[in-house]
Design a protein around this nucleic acid. Structure first.
Lengths: 262, 262
DNA sequence: CTTGCCCACTCGTCTATACGAGTATGCCTG
DNA sequence: CAGGCATACTCGTATAGACGAGTGGGCAAG
């Protein structure tokens, strides 16, 4: 039961006014930053840390909970506390909705995933009519009812994104868009076939901590924020034809945009 | 000392297998969501919650710490625990670096802030030469040394963003760009005057929890992630002339992009 | 050899207590 | 009335102990 990780963690400074649990968190954080604990490594158990620092278990747990909310470590019941592995990230390029991609027939998500060598799935597909929230209604020009298409995307079995598309009912009712599978190229291809040639998209991006519901849906570790993206699609007549509300696990994504300088 | 918030919080379900501290957190969260506690409101004190639920103080604190990491509440030593107020949000439009804005002479940040009726400041401006990190070097075409310009932006006295611009030394040395104040229109205006007509920007966006250093610099409440934006500016010859690394308080920003559909 | 159980070790939940430190209020003093 | 102090109330830090529940390895029985 002696120090299982000899020399990796130092001693406390009793003269410091920094709280003990913060000092412990600082030392572990530094050890991770410097690579003395690597991705996936098991940290010393709570009991070992109690032993090493001569503090009570609650103090140690307090330290570990700090590192957990920072997203540095994850704890697994019955197994230990581990340095959080950095998952592969998906890069979302700003041209992912370009017409030329649509014309190839596959959905943007699947094309990109396959290019990255990952296995992708889409599940919990729900399609139905509903009353839009105030925010969605405002973006769509205040329709009374909308068609909502909900789906969750998984990458190599891990849920990474949950998205809902909203379309005005007068536009989507009794069309392939109201079917679970709207056909090759997705709903944007169908919209264009129906005469709504797409002109541009507006995207709004926020980041925040997930709600408990989002934690479940995306199986998020603690300390992982979400990226909340709201995209509005406009046709060439300036009408908003779709709003897509997407919540992404922030540790699985990097968004890329290209902006002209003029 | 009776229930100071009569009826707002319910009772525990002893038959539930949901942990007590989670049930308490659930009830407070629901009360906030439904508006029974409003922004800035003081929650019942820990002692009152202990009384109300008949649990120990550590259990109550555990509940509150959940809500804190979710970003729903903030605690203030000696005062109480409060529903976190949603700060005013700065909207960053994707045309904020358009040439027409530059030609007006003011920096993008200040122009936007004034338009929104906020008072803006820039502080901790540091300009100096340094060795670039591996990542920055790769984006700039592997220069050995770079000019770094660091600054922090404040809105109505609150720090919201910390940014560092990196430029290849051969391009920036002995130019106004190496001065603390580069003059009207900022460094992009100077670059264009020097013959580097800007063509486009690449922006990469990630979200994550802040480091302790970022918590201090941006005075972040717990439960607030950061948005990490890395922008690379290219001139018309395809050369990367600047990389700007920006860390933003996520609760203060919404990023907006417009994408063409073709 | 395989199956199943037990046990040791891990983190999860909860209690009870103590003292420290920051804040606000009101009273007392000058 | 102004200033300062006492006090009560707030959250912060830390201890010690108890039991529960998930995991994994080893041992024993079949």
């Amino acid at each position: 039961m002696a120090a299982l990780s000899p020399g990796v963690l130092g001693a406390l400074d009793p003269t410091s006014d920094r709280a003990v649990f913060r000092q412990i968190a600082d030392q572990i954080r530094e050890a991770i930053d410097k690579g003395r604990f690597k991705e996936g490594d098991k940290l010393p158990s709570e009991a070992e840390l109690v032993e090493h620092y001569g503090v009570s278990r609650m103090t140690v747990r307090n330290s570990l909970s700090i590192l957990q909310t920072e997203g540095l470590v994850v704890s697994e019941h019955g197994r230990g506390v581990f340095v959080r592995p950095r998952p592969p990230v998906r890069r979302l390029a700003s041209d992912r909705f370009a017409r030329r991609h649509r014309e190839q027939g596959k959905s943007a998500f699947i094309v990109e995933a396959e290019a990255a060598g990952s296995k992708s799935e889409v599940d919990s597909l729900e399609v139905g009519e509903e009353r839009p929230s105030q925010d969605i209604a405002a973006r769509l020009g205040s329709p009374r009812r909308v068609l909502a298409r909900r789906r969750r995307y998984l990458l190599d079995g891990r849920p990474v994104e949950f998205a809902t598309s909203y379309l005005p009912l007068d536009l989507a009712r009794n069309t392939p868009i109201a079917q679970p599978n709207p056909g090759p190229g997705g709903i944007y291809a169908r919209l264009e076939e129906m005469g709504h040639r797409l002109d541009h998209f507006d995207e709004e991006i926020k980041a925040r901590m997930p709600t408990p519901q989002e934690v479940r849906t995306l199986r998020l570790a603690s300390g992982v924020p979400v990226i909340h993206l709201i995209r509005t699609a406009y046709d060439t007549e300036g009408r908003a034809v779709e709003v897509c509300d997407t919540v992404m696990a922030a540790d699985a994504y990097v968004l890329a945009y290209q902006l002209p300088a003029n």
